[in-house]
Structure formats: structure tokens, C-alpha cells
Design a protein around this nucleic acid. Structure first.
Length: 483
RNA sequence: CGGGGAGUGGCUCAGCCUGGUAGAGCACUUGGUUCGGGACCAAGGGGUCGCAGGUUCAAAUCCUGUCUCCCCGACCA
């Protein structure tokens, strides 16, 4: 007897409403939940596990390059923020401020950090004396708060988790090298671990971080063809060093301001991961970041008690073997739920690989394996189960990237007129000439909803004519609707 | 912040217009039968109707305020 599908369990299909699909998925896959605090979310164990895996990988990548972790206060004296004029101007509208503490009004309000350049520079100024102290390479895993008008789970919340790298260098060249190097780290992480292809490039003047010389970003394309800025790396020049008097005595015996960088990725990456790979059945997670790689579902059918015992014994042994091989394994032997229910459930929460094992398989010394992304059944000998599972996970990791990349590439266009730009506004990444004028950029945004994402490094910059004004353009920049 | 929609057991929603003892399906608990794509039967448990005021003999229902969420815009990682 088959019951009707439980409509309540199904996600809104992407075609019907991408935003609703996303919200449904985040909640039904138990990644996050709303809280009673405006704009803030609760990251549930399924979601936090993804973040922990991201942290683990990134942390190692940072440390391998010589960065060390540290921790600075959540609260920043308001006066610190005001030291760098552009910085405070940029962040002012988004600040939460603590005015009272310990039962009385504070002499000077504290700002809840929107980012930590200022308070970190206060320490840098104390710690750095000589060029021998450089480079100084720090990273902080922390929460930050930016008051937002409109929030979306993972993509934009008032409080979010991130890492912020902060480095000091002797020369501008060293700082630039670091800025670009960390952007490459982000690209590697996004592509090799998240299986999310990204464009790297420089942000336009209007998209530059408040207080930076230059901002670079990695930009990914979501399944609805909108861009997601997935990470940023800033060359801060000497702006903060001058504001906080962070100086060192150079090889020439004279005092110099340090050259700085900062770079960050946040829990927004989880949103990017979801919107890059997942489907109408639920979450799809690249194996390299999955907490649970395999679910084993024992099937009992009309089996006798003795057969059931045998099935259970086999599934237990298989689970142990898979774990020994380093995989995250769940043995779902709950006999109050039907196999079909479990299939759907694990597709919803994004378990990478499903293994079914029943009496019929036992008789053939085999099992059934199903990859979450392609959902096709494959019969596998139990003797080869572990190696086959690993091979399927490897293939899945590669295929997810390939699929996402071909999606992005097939929705990336060279556009040569303003008409065409308007026409293709919803179709993905549009490579167009622009004369660098922020007013023209603002007009395009106003009229089409398109923003400049970045000037891609791997796109040869050839002069042309601005699609709006016809004036000279140094090269094409990516326009897209964006999160 | 503007426009639109919505808050009623864990979830999806009905009831509200026209005030009068709070409902359904799913989920949950227990027992039994089931089991290769969301099983079935039976018996149970669970809700001060987002919150705060007000009107009234009486408020989920009417009035005022407020909070939150969703969709579409403007601001941002």
C-alpha cells in the first residue's frame, strides 16, 4: 500500500519561485531557523556542520600560508571607527551601538563590530616596531553585525559568522601580492571544495570596501542566474595605518606606515553552496564539505527474522568499513519509517550517497548505490562497496563543479549595446564595456537592476566603447543582477 | 524604508466577513500489521489563536498599537 505523498514535506519547485524554494530548503533541511531577533537566524546542526567543514578547510589553507589566528573584542569604541573617514561613512548606516552597560550610560558608546580593521589596527600600532616584525599575518574567526534593511537566511543576516584576515606588510607590492594571493585561496576553496565556479576580479570604485585602495572579489552564479559575491579581498594601502599611526622603522632607518590587507568569507558561502547545486528534492552538498557522505538503508521486505538479522549484520559491517575509510556514515535502521520515506528524507537533507541493502542484495552479495545528484541506482558488489563509494563521491564532486561551470558559461554573454544589456538583464553574466563613470553605473542600475560585479582577471582587457555613452572603455566588466 | 501578503498544537492550513465551549490533515506517543521511492489500523498526548492595549456580559473573530516572516523595490557581504 502506497500513501499519497505528503505535500507538506515538498519544497516549492525552483521554477515556481526560486526564493521560496530556497527558504523552504533551508528550513526543511534543518540548516537554519528564524529567531525572535530581527534579521538574525539560528544556525541548526545541519547548517553548522557545513560551516565547521568550511572553517576546517579554510583554516588549514590560511595557516599553511603563515597566518595565525587571534581574537579581538566584539565591541569597538565609537571613536576608533571615526578615525578613518571613508570607513565610518561607509558603515555608519549599518551600525548597532551599545550606549548603556553595567546599569549606567557609557562615557563613550561602543559599536558592535561590523568588521575589525579599526580595533585591530589599534593593536598593530602597538605591536609593530620594525620591518623585522613584518609581515604580520593574522586571521580572526568571529561574528559581526551589520544592520540590514532586508535579510535572507545565510545570504544576508544582521549577525553573521565569518573570518577576517588582517595583514601588515613592508611594501605596497607585498600587500598587493597578499591581497591577490588570498583571493586565489578563496577561488581554490570555492572551486575545489564547494564545487562552485567563481570569477575573480576587481570591484568597481563604487563597490570598493570603505577605506580600501582596491577590492577584489570572487563572484559565483546561482541557479537563478543572479550573482553572489562570495568573498572579498582588500588592499587597504596605508589608509588605516595612517589613521591609527601603525608605523615601522624600515631598512632605511626611517619610519613608514605599514601596507595592509584584509579579506573575508562568511556564512553567506552556505547560501551559495545551496543555490549552486541543490534541486527540487532538496540539498546537494559536494562530498568534500559534507558531514554525512553515506546513508545505509537496510531493506527488510518480507524477510524472515533470520534474514533481517543477516541484513542488519551486513549493513553494520559495511558502515564500519566505510567509516574506517574516513567517510561520514549514517545507518538508518529505524523500522518505523519506510524505505521510501528515508530516500526522500536523505535527499532533502543532502546526504551524498545512499546505499540500499536488502535480502535480494544479500543473496547476490551486492547492494544498491545512488548518488544524490544524479539519483540513479547502481548495483555494486559488497566486496567493492567501499572503493566504489569513494569513487562515486569523487565523481560527484567533479560532476557538480562541471555542471555548475557549464551552467555559468552558458549564461555568460558579451554584450555590445545598451539595448542588448537591458534585453539580457535576467540572463546571467553580461560582459560589457563601460566608461568607468559611477554616474553611468548608477544609471544602469537604476534602469536595469544590473550592477557591476567585477572586472575579471582572466578576461583580456581590450579597449572599446561604453554601451551607454559610447565613450572609451578600458575593457569589459561583468554586469549582473546580484544578491 | 515603500508596495503587496501572512502570523491559529511541531508543520500546512480552515474558522474571522456576521463575536458565544478552538478544528482538520500531516507530524508525535503506545500497540499491532508493514517495509526495494514519502505504509496501514486502533487508541492517545499536545494550542492563554504573534505580542500589548482597548470595545463588549462575552474576542481567534471588532478597534488601536507593536513585533516577526514571505514576495517585489531602494541599501549591503
Amino acid at each position: 500500500m502506497k500513501g499519497a505523498p505528503h505535500m507538506a514535506e515538498k519544497l516549492t519547485p525552483r521554477e515556481k519561485g526560486f526564493s521560496e524554494w530556497y527558504v523552504d530548503l533551508v528550513q526543511k533541511a534543518k540548516l537554519a531557523d528564524y529567531s525572535d531577533v530581527k534579521g538574525c537566524m539560528v544556525i541548526r546542526p545541519n547548517g553548522y556542520a557545513l560551516w565547521e567543514n568550511m572553517q576546517r578547510v579554510l583554516d588549514k589553507m590560511f595557516k599553511d600560508l603563515g597566518h595565525k589566528n587571534a581574537y579581538f573584542p566584539l565591541l569597538i569604541p565609537e571613536s576608533y571607527l571615526k578615525k578613518e573617514a571613508e570607513h565610518v561613512e561607509g558603515f555608519n548606516p549599518q551600525l548597532a551601538v551599545v550606549t548603556h552597560a553595567g546599569g549606567s550610560k557609557l562615557e563613550e558608546p561602543y559599536v558592535i563590530r561590523p568588521t575589525s580593521e579599526t580595533i585591530i589596527n589599534r593593536s598593530f600600532a602597538k605591536w609593530i616596531q620594525s620591518y623585522r616584525d613584518l609581515p604580520l599575518l593574522l586571521n580572526q574567526w568571529a561574528n559581526v553585525m551589520r544592520w540590514e534593511m532586508r535579510t535572507r537566511l545565510f545570504l544576508r543576516t544582521t549577525e553573521f559568522l565569518w573570518q577576517e584576515g588582517h595583514t601588515c606588510h613592508e611594501t605596497e607590492e607585498d600587500a598587493e601580492k597578499e591581497t591577490r594571493q588570498m583571493l586565489e585561496v578563496y577561488r581554490t576553496f570555492a572551486e575545489d571544495y564547494m564545487a562552485m565556479p567563481v570569477m575573480t576580479g576587481q570591484k568597481s570604485e563604487s563597490e570598493r570596501f570603505a577605506g580600501a585602495l582596491r577590492t577584489y572579489s570572487i563572484e559565483a552564479m546561482m541557479q537563478d542566474k543572479k550573482a553572489l559575491q562570495a568573498g572579498t579581498s582588500h588592499n587597504l594601502g596605508q589608509n588605516f595605518a595612517k589613521a591609527f599611526d601603525t608605523q615601522f622603522q624600515g631598512r632605511d632607518g626611517k619610519m613608514h606606515h605599514v601596507w595592509q590587507t584584509s579579506w573575508g568569507v562568511s556564512t553567506r558561502l552556505i547560501g551559495g553552496l545551496i543555490m549552486t547545486h541543490s534541486d527540487d528534492a532538496g540539498l546537494i552538498v559536494p562530498p568534500k564539505l559534507a558531514a554525512t557522505h553515506v546513508v545505509i538503508i537496510p531493506i527488510f521486505g518480507k524477510a524472515s527474522d533470520a534474514e533481517k538479522a543477516q541484513v542488519l549484520e551486513k549493513t553494520n559491517a559495511l558502515a564500519a568499513d566505510l567509516r574506517k575509510a574516513g567517510l561520514g556514515v549514517v545507518l538508518d535502521d529505524d523500522d518505523t519509517k519506510s524505505p521510501g520515506f528515508k530516500y526522500n528524507e536523505h535527499e532533502l537533507i543532502g546526504t551524498c550517497l545512499r546505499i540500499e541493502l536488502g535480502p535480494k542484495d544479500l543473496a547476490k552479495n551486492s547492494c544498491v548505490m545512488v548518488r544524490r545528484d544524479v539519483r540513479q541506482k547502481e548495483f555494486v558488489s559488497l566486496d567493492e562497496a567501499v572503493s566504489k563509494a569513494q569513487a562515486m563521491l569523487d565523481a560527484m564532486q567533479k560532476d557538480l563543479f562541471t555542471k555548475a561551470k557549464s551552467f555559468r558559461d552558458s549564461h555568460t554573454f558579451e554584450v555590445n549595446s545598451y539595448e542588448e544589456l537591458k534585453e539580457k538583464a535576467d540572463q546571467g553574466f553580461l560582459l560589457a564595456h563601460w566608461n568607468l563613470d559611477p554616474k553611468v553605473e548608477a544609471r544602469i542600475k537604476e534602469e536595469t537592476g544590473l550592477t557591476t560585479r567585477c572586472r575579471p582577471f582572466d578576461l583580456k582587457q581590450e579597449p572599446g566603447k561604453c554601451v551607454v555613452t559610447g565613450e572609451p572603455s578600458p575593457g569589459r566588466i561583468v554586469f549582473s543582477k546580484a544578491y
